[in-house]
């Protein structure tokens, strides 16, 4: 288990858990399809700035701080 930010470009992971702080934002993430059990692919992770994910057919940009709180299992 590791934070999403450690996945490199092109790598995939399965979302395992969230480090819960500030609940509303996690609800929003979930509503956008970022949910436990989903597979995400990192499209762009450039060590600064936001991370771009692909979940199913949608591309979602997430701030780095937030991405740190999403825990994944590398696939």
């Amino acid at each position: 288990m590791m934070p999403l930010t450690l996945l490199r470009n092109g790598e995939k992971g399965e979302i395992v858990d969230f480090i819960k702080k500030g609940k509303a934002i996690f609800c929003h993430l979930r509503d956008m399809g970022i949910n436990v059990g989903k597979t995400v692919e990192v499209i762009s992770n450039q060590s600064h700035g936001p991370i771009l994910l692909k979940i199913d057919e949608s591309r979602i940009a997430i701030g780095r701080g937030m991405a740190m709180k999403i825990l994944v299992r590398r696939l």
């Binding site: 929003h28 993430l29 057919e57 949608s58 591309r59 979602i60 940009a61 997430i62």
Partner: peptide, 11 residues
Amino acid sequence: FAPVFIMELPP
């Protein structure tokens, strides 16, 4: 501070 940046990028 800015709230968390979350945005969907369309194709």
